[in-house]
Structure formats: C-alpha cells, structure tokens
Design a protein around this nucleic acid. Structure first.
Length: 648
RNA sequence: GCCACCGUAGCUCAGUUGGUUAGAGCGGCUGAUUCGUAAUCAGCAGGUCAUGAGUUCGACUCUCAUCGGUGGCUCCA
C-alpha cells in the first residue's frame, strides 16, 4: 500500500501501482472524468502512470494551467501524428503547448508548403485519430536506443535534441502509430480532445537562430468541448474589434502612408489631441518630481554615437548617416536621446549638490526596424519617447529608482492598466560580449534594480539576456488585444555611459566622482502607449483624455448659431467640444454620436437658446437635465478631477 | 531581413471555371424637410480592381517582379 497526501493535507492509502486516474476514481467518478494529468511529489505525472511510493498528489484538470498545458501538449502530438499521416516523411522539431494553444515546428517532405487550404484536412485527420481514442503510452528509453529510433526515421532535429539530453532521463510517448521524444505528461488518450482548429502557419528558424534552416510552424488550438472552441473563436473576433489599427482608422487618430514610408505614423488631429493631453499630464507629474524639460535636435554627429557605443552596436542596421556636402561630416538621425543629454550634463562642472539632475525630453527618435517587425503604432520607425535621464550619485540610485516606479504605477493606476507584469531584464552571463561595461558595474546595477523593485513590493519576473547592452532594466510589460506582450515603461541603471562620456561631479571632499545614469520612460513611447491605451479602452478614452469631450446637438438648423456659441464658450475654457450641425433629426444625431462614444451630448433647442442653457445627456442615455453652461463646465471639471485623483 | 498569406470606392464587403458598360450598404455631395433624446426622404458623384511587366483574341481573375499590409520567426538602444 502507498500513502497519498492530497493538497488539503488529507492522507489516504491506495494499492501500490495505482495511477492518479485510479486514485481519482476511488475518490469520485466525476473527478476521475476531469483529471487530465497530475503532479506527484512535485514532478509532472501522467494520469495513467503508476505510483509506487508514498507522496503528495495534485490532480490537474482543464480548469488549471497545468491541465490545459497537458491537454495542448497532447494536442500537439496529435497534430504531429496527423501531419505524419498526411505528409509521410515529415521531420519534427519541437511542439510545445502555448498560453492559448500549441504549435509544432516541422520540415515537410519534398518542399511541400502548407497553406490555409490544407487546414481542414489536417483538422479532419486530427479528429479522426482523436476518435480512435488511442492511449498516450510513456516509455523510458536509453539514449542510444532513442537516437537509433529517430535516426531510422531520419528525424535529424530530434536526434540533435536527444544528443543533448542525459542518458537515463529520456522518455518517449507513443499514441497510435506516432512516437515522439517527450518529457510529458500527456492525456490518458486522444479521445479527450473533442475540438481542434489549425489557426495559422508561420516560418520559424530551427532553435530560434536565424542562421539555421527555417521550419514550418503550424499553430493550433484544441478543446475538450466543441462549445469552447466556438467561444474561443468569438473571443478572437471581439479582440480584433479592439485592435488599435482598426480603431485608430475609424476614429481618425493616426494613419500611415506608403508615400511617406513604412512605419512612419501620421498623427491626425484627434490622435494629436490625445497624445498632447498625455504629454501635458506626464510633464506635470515630472515637474513635481524635479525634472527639467529640454529639447534637442533630431540629428546628431555620428561621433556622439561612436562615443556612446550605440554606433558599434547598431550602426550597421540603422538608417545610414547623413553626409554634409562641404565639411564631409556624418550625422545620424537620432536613435536615442541619452548622448544629447550627456552633453547637457557636461556643459558645466557639476557639484554633488546638483544631483540628482533630471533631464527630461519628449524626444522623437528614428530607428530602422526590420520591415517584418513593423506593427501599427506599437513598432514604428519614428516615435517619441517620454525620455529622461537622471544623473545621480551612487547613494541616490535606489531612491530615484523608486520614485520612477512610483510615477509609472501612478500612470498605470490613472489609466486602469491592471494587467501588467514587471520584468527585471538582466544580462546573459554566458554572452557577455553582447554588452559593454565591467562585471563590477553590472553587478551593482543589477542589484540596485532588484533591491528597488523589492522595496516597492513589485511582483516581478526575471528575464536573463533581456538587458540593454549598456545596463539592466526594469520593464513594465502590457498585453495588446491579440495577446502580444509589449514593453511600455522602462527604467534602466547605467554605469557605462557616464564612463564613456567622462561625466563627473565634485564631491564634498573636493574630489571628482562619476555619476550614475538612470534612463527611464514611463510610457516607453507615445506611439506604443497610445496603441495599448486604445486597445485597453476599445477607443473609449476617459473624459480627461478623449479628443472630443462633448458635442452640441441643435434640434434644428435654427439653433445652429446658439450651438456654436455654446461650443465656443466651452472651447475657450479649454474643453474639447464640437457641434453636430448636420441637417438631421435629433434622434439621428444622438445615435451617431453615441456610436462614436462621445461622453456628453448637449441638446439645444428653443428652450435652451432662450434661457442660455444646455440639456445634458451623458453617454449611455443618461439624462442629466438642463443646466447653464457654467454648471456644465463644473460638471466636466469635477469628473476630470475625479479621474485624475481617484480616492484610496 | 526570413516563411506563409492578403491588396476591388473614404469604410465594410460582393464579383461564378478568364468573356460585354465592376456592384451593394455605410459614408460624402446636392435638394427637400426644421424636426426634442439611438437611423427623414429623393437624387448625384466616387474605382487605371495596389503598381509594372508578361501569357491570351480577351485579365479584377493566370504568371513574374515591385510596393504596401496581415500572422509568425529573428531583432528591439
């Protein structure tokens, strides 16, 4: 007999060799139906793998992440089997589960290319195999045998993976006629999978290295119920409607023109209003924190970037230098603001009393992003950073860093960004040649970030190898409508640029010291930030930020003059108000402006014109009654105040 | 940059296996209507079917190239 401890700490005895599925059955049949896999003594465990010793057991169902993961991973194997049957000779790379589904990287025989038209056949074959309800069978194999198995099949990618594994820890899983190298765990059998859909196809370099061969990556989703697949597809459609590229076009916030160039956004009047409002909002916060705003040119001498190290790192893949005709000088389109700000620091001797010196700029920069990477406003070639460089004494690093975290968290709170992750991006210690600077400086910079994040109680993840080439970062990541992660806010500790630009300050002891730089951008870039904001709000911006706060609706053309007077009075007071003076009925005007999500509609007719009032309708047909223009101003002001200064 | 796919009016889309003057709704313009809280009526304009070559008696439809876009991969100071 074996003693099994469950998560609620209860202990029960079962026969030796019982599987998690057996145990679940003994507890309750309904539970057994839902168990997909398990964790035994902290190890991922198949639901059908016997247990021969005492230990703790956790069941995994569709409702938890591990259960979904098992399900999707098994679906990837199912798809692999289908592909092998449909295209014999297919070679397999890796096929993991993802957050929403799974993929498999394959090399198809004879240069076969899969297209959308092949998806139904693959899905059909997958369901055909699923219905056979073949068990996923686990087998421990010796390294030599595993190698032989896959060599015989000609699966060189699998052989490469096996050769890197340790003998004694290798397992294979077989379902039906398909065997794969796999750590598991897997579903008991293919019949658990009731609905599948191949979602897309993509090229993917083997092992993520662009020097390797490009394999075909087939993406899919799988569910235990058809209804779940249907719901998932509806959800996808909904997400598409929130896409900032679509909303940006509909609301006339921004546009692109092939004639202007790829990835070069044109900010339209309404988008510009949003952007300027955000800029003013942040500038005001930064003033409170002692930042000084500067403006620097859009180009800079190439030597500036040779000094900073950026040219050596990115020069070749950048917009190429601009040559002056007579002096034969070279200028770069400014790819970042830090060197310019370093030069501002250098303008005069700095005392320890001057620090921290906080130089801020809404600086537009230009980077030659690869064409395949461009994406709406989230990845562009011309963008404006809400940049600042804090030149600090070493003893001030932590306090300044924490202050920046406060600014970012405040912005996120005001804009209701709740779903972010704070990512500590460190240097890859195995790839030091990708970075500049000494080990000592890196160690100091990294620990400064880790400590500050800890002090602020941030829930952080750590990503090795994601640091900037001159220093580690704390990045605030947010997801867009289709689940892609983007870096918004970033804070970076940098010992290197002060060194390279030979920055100094005089200490109390009259000796020279090196300041440390903190690079930081709470929005990251206005472009990306607005994009994510659009997707978070589905284009319904808060009142303080929305480009049109109210629209005046004259009942008929007779009241257009009065409507214009109302709008002028409000616009003069710096509210953003328009007039809908089309010769339409009031019902039509209300409908159209409701669909445009205008927060307030001011209906004016004979009565209002005579009494100098407006009839206020809040979006969503809430009638706030008739009031004077002054009272309406107070109403908006109060609401904006509430948005910008939430209680708690 | 690499792989796959896509490109018809301002927007959303239709357009049979290549075959007459490429259609619709919304939007726009003009006229009528002057209206009280989610769509007034009528008329009109708008397209070198992304661009350029080619195949063909004939190309929106087939082929190639270029440009732009979409989903990934790689990259992201």
């Amino acid at each position: 007999m074996i003693k099994i401890t469950f998560p609620d700490q209860s202990v029960k005895e079962f026969e030796g060799g019982s599987t998690p599925l057996d145990i679940a059955k003994a507890l309750s049949n309904s539970l057994a139906k839902e168990v997909l896999s398990a964790t035994f003594n902290g190890n991922p465990w198949d639901a059908t793998r016997p247990i021969n010793e005492d230990g703790t057991l956790v069941f995994h169902k569709w409702d938890d992440d591990e259960g979904k993961h098992t399900f999707r991973h098994s679906a990837a194997h199912l798809m692999a089997e289908a592909l092998e049957q449909l295209y014999p000779g297919t070679k397999f790379g890796i096929g993991p589960a993802l957050e929403n589904g799974f993929y498999y990287d394959v090399e198809l025989p004879g240069g076969k290319v899969i297209t959308d038209e092949d998806f139904p056949a693959i899905e059909k074959k997958m369901m055909e195999i699923a219905r056979q309800n073949n068990p996923y069978v686990r087998k421990e194999v010796a390294k030599a045998d595993a190698l032989k198995d896959f060599q015989t099949k000609g699966d060189n990618y699998k052989c490469e993976l096996i050769s890197e594994l340790e003998d004694g820890s290798i397992t294979e899983y077989t379902q039906g006629g398909y065997t794969d190298l796999c750590r598991g765990p897997h579903l008991p059998s293919t019949g658990y999978i009731k609905a599948v859909k191949i979602t897309s196809i993509a090229g993917a370099y083997w092992r993520g290295n662009e020097n390797n061969k490009m394999l075909t990556r087939v993406y899919g989703v799988a569910f235990p119920k058809q209804k779940m697949l249907d719901e998932y597809l509806v959800l996808l459609e909904e997400a598409k409607k929130r896409d900032h590229r679509k909303i940006g076009k509909d609301m006339e916030l921004f546009a692109f023109s092939a004639r202007v160039g790829q990835g070069l956004p044109l900010w339209l009047p309404k988008g510009t209003l949003v952007r300027e409002t955000l800029t003013k909002f942040l500038a005001k916060i930064q003033r409170k924190y002692g930042y000084q705003q500067v403006i620097t040119p859009h180009i800079g001498n190439k030597d500036l970037y040779v000094t900073s190290g950026h040219y050596a790192k990115y020069g070749k893949d950048s917009f190429q230098p601009i040559h002056t005709p007579s002096e034969d000088e070279e200028f770069l389109l400014k790819p970042m603001n830090c060197p310019h700000h370093c030069e501002i620091y250098r303008l005069k001797p700095r005392s320890y009393k001057d620090l921290p010196l906080r130089i801020a700029e809404f600086g537009t920069v230009y980077r030659y992003e690869q064409s395949g990477e461009l994406h709406g406003l989230t990845r562009v070639r011309s963008f404006t950073q809400d940049d600042a460089h804090l030149f600090v004494r070493p003893d001030q690093i932590k306090q300044e860093f924490c202050n920046v975290i406060d600014i970012i968290l405040y912005i996120f709170k005001i804009l209701h960004f709740t779903e972010y992750t704070a990512q500590i991006s460190l240097r890859d210690p195995d790839n030091k040649e990708k970075y500049i600077g000494t080990d000592e400086h890196w160690a100091m910079a990294e620990s400064a970030i880790i400590e500050a994040a800890k002090e602020k109680g941030l829930n952080t993840t750590v990503e090795t190898g994601e640091a900037a080439f001159y220093g580690p970062k704390l990045d605030f990541m947010v997801k867009d409508a289709i689940g892609r992660k983007w870096q918004l806010g970033t804070i970076q500790v940098d010992y290197n640029l002060p060194e390279r630009f030979d920055l100094e300050f005089t200490g109390a002891d009259d000796k020279k010291y090196r300041p440390v730089m903190i690079h930081r951008a709470p929005f990251g870039s206005l472009e990306r930030f607005v994009a994510v904001l659009i997707e978070n709000t589905a284009g319904q911006f808060p009142l303080w930020l929305t480009p049109t706060q109210a629209v005046v609706l004259p009942i008929s053309d007779k009241y257009n003059d009065y409507a214009n007077q109302v709008a002028t009075a409000l616009n003069d007071a710096e509210y953003r108000v328009e007039v809908d003076d089309r010769s339409e009925k009031i019902g039509r005007k209300i409908r159209d402006n409701e669909t445009k999500h205008i927060p307030f509609m001011l209906v004016v007719g004979e009565k209002e014109a005579a009494e100098g009032q407006v009839s206020v309708r809040k979006q969503g047909k809430i009638d706030l009654g008739t009031m004077s223009i002054e009272d309406f101003k107070k109403l908006i002001a109060a609401e904006v105040e509430k948005e910008l200064n939430p209680e708690d």
